[in-house]
Design a protein around this nucleic acid. Structure first.
Length: 461
RNA sequence: GGCGCGGUGGCAGAGUGGUUAUGCAGCGGACUGCAACUCCGUGUACGCCGGUUCGAUUCCGACCCGCGCCUCCA
């Protein structure tokens, strides 16, 4: 199986350090606000990756951290007039709700920065001792970028360019403008932890170095994150970790593509973001997930109402194939040509778009078998569709639950059933005008009817 | 300015040195009381210019355009 490695800028054959086991770390959220769709993309992308690795038989140890102490958190808490931990507690809860709705499985471990202060201090201490970091007069501790010759190897940046391009407002305390903070001294009244360098709190980058090596060891297989973390965050993590441990930090670096709105990156700083919960007010969660999974994890995707609507229509088609069928028992259905094709495309850097094409081919088979009255074959294919859909975190609902999910319409399921009965009676009496009137009335209220030999089913538009 | 990624049919989106992506939308037909669903069939494509090749959308080079990072940001 091949994975694109940001470090080497090419797809590489993936070989875990310990055969059969994958150790993976993904940078999670800084919890000062609700997650937006861009966060959702990273969440879903690495969820699919971990699901597929497990499907492939790997024992996956997936660590995704939470940054629960940081400048922005303190600023927001201050603005809200609340204790920072109240804010982070609330946002962590919201994040867990959002990801659960998107079908994102919990990582194996979810370390929080504030629970790793001792490890962070120990790592900073090691870096100072070995000459890779220094305590400045202002109480901050900085990493000395010049002490690490490989600095820039991930982002392909040259130190000279970075220094030359450094913005105004360079910290006097820094020896080089590109140096970054490992420890930030506390301002009066600010939450802080005691350290050999005075009261303060950890810098952002060192948290991830400490947590990842603590949870996964000095060297591990995969490190992932959003596209904007590549520099400086991941570059700095490499510098800190490799200087502190003396070992290679990570074998494979993976970065998701950005979500865009009107050709611009969706981001906090541009203010053009849609939160996950905001989007879920309008679209079913699985439709949002389908939208995210339907393009490759590294490509940029544009968010729009139209693309979500199309994702909805397409997912509806897939669920239609499953409707009214009891899938065969998964273990009774041997590996099919579709399973092999699915694995083939997913083995190629997690090509979920190709994998979804396989899902459509299976749905086609199911519909075909049903048309020919081969219910047994349809049930077998349905098992394959649900099994492979599950690897992408899709198609795990009962089709009726998907179609009839209550989105706050004015009609209850009982009301609708009653109208369907009335229509059936009218049609039986050949009163088609009345039957059509009822159907139109339901359509106006967002209910679509599907007739078949077995009777009439309904779904919400 | 430096570094990186990309330009595929009406739209979304994979992929390949010569042969079908897939989905949505469209068109024709079947099914249906009429629809919906489903099935069958069908059209439109690889930014531009050179080069390599028997043959390039796919490889190489130049160009144009778009995007990302270079500052907190998934």
């Amino acid at each position: 199986m091949r994975i694109y490695n940001t470090l080497t800028q090419q797809k590489e054959e993936f070989k875990p350090i310990v055969p059969g086991k994958v150790r993976m770390y993904v940078c999670g959220m800084t919890v000062y606000d609700y997650c937006h769709l861009g966060h959702g993309r990273v969440l879903v992308a690495f969820d699919v990756i971990s699901r597929y690795l497990r499907h492939r038989g790997y024992d996956v140890h997936y660590v995704r951290n939470i940054t629960d102490i940081d400048d922005k958190i303190l600023a927001r808490a201050d603005q809200n007039g609340e204790v920072y931990s109240d804010l982070t507690g609330r946002m962590i809860k919201a994040m867990h709700e959002d990801e659960a709705r998107l079908g994102v499985l919990s990582p194996s471990e979810e370390p929080r920065a504030t629970a790793f202060i001792d490890e962070i201090i120990a790592m900073i201490h090691t870096l100072i001792s070995s000459g890779h970091a220094y305590a400045a007069d202002n109480g901050d501790v900085y990493f000395s970028v010049n002490s690490f010759p490989d600095y820039g190897k991930l982002s392909k940046k040259k130190l000279e360019d970075l220094v030359a391009g450094a913005r105004v407002g360079v910290q006097e305390a820094k020896r080089s403008p590109a140096d970054f903070a490992l420890w930030k001294s506390a301002r009066p009244g600010e939450v802080s932890w005691t350290s050999p360098w005075g009261d303060g709190r950890p810098g952002w980058h060192i948290e991830c170095s400490a947590m990842s090596t603590q949870c996964l060891g000095d060297t591990f297989d995969i490190h992932g994150g959003g596209p904007d973390l590549l520099f400086p965050h991941h570059e700095n993590e490499i510098a800190q970790s490799e200087c502190a441990t003396g070992h290679k930090f990570v074998n494979t670096w993976m970065h998701a593509g950005a979500i865009r709105v009107n050709k611009e990156k969706m981001s906090k700083s541009l203010g053009n973001f849609f939160t996950i919960r905001q989007i879920l007010e309008t679209y079913p969660a699985e439709v949002v997930r389908y939208f995210l999974v339907s393009s490759h994890y590294r490509s940029q995707v544009d968010y729009s109402e139209d693309s979500l609507a199309e994702a909805g229509r397409t997912l509806t088609k897939l669920y239609h194939a499953l409707r009214g069928i009891t899938p065969a028992k998964n273990s009774d259905v041997a590996e099919t040509e579709h399973d092999r094709r699915f694995a083939e495309v997913m083995d190629d850097d997690f090509n979920t778009a190709g994998a979804i094409a396989v899902l459509h081919a299976i749905a086609n088979d199911i519909n075909h078998h049903r048309r020919e009255g081969r219910e047994d074959r349809a049930a077998q294919s349905a098992a394959v569709l649900v099994r492979l859909g599950g690897v992408l975190g899709l198609l795990q609902q009962n089709p009726e639950a998907f179609f009839q999910a209550d989105t706050g319409g004015e009609l209850s399921a009982d009301d609708i059933e009653a109208m369907i009965q009335a229509r059936a009676a009218a049609r039986k009496a050949k009163n088609f005008a009345e039957g059509d009137r009822i159907r139109d009335e339901l359509l106006e209220k967002g209910i679509i009817l599907d007739d078949s030999r077995e009777g009439t089913t309904w779904r919400r538009a």
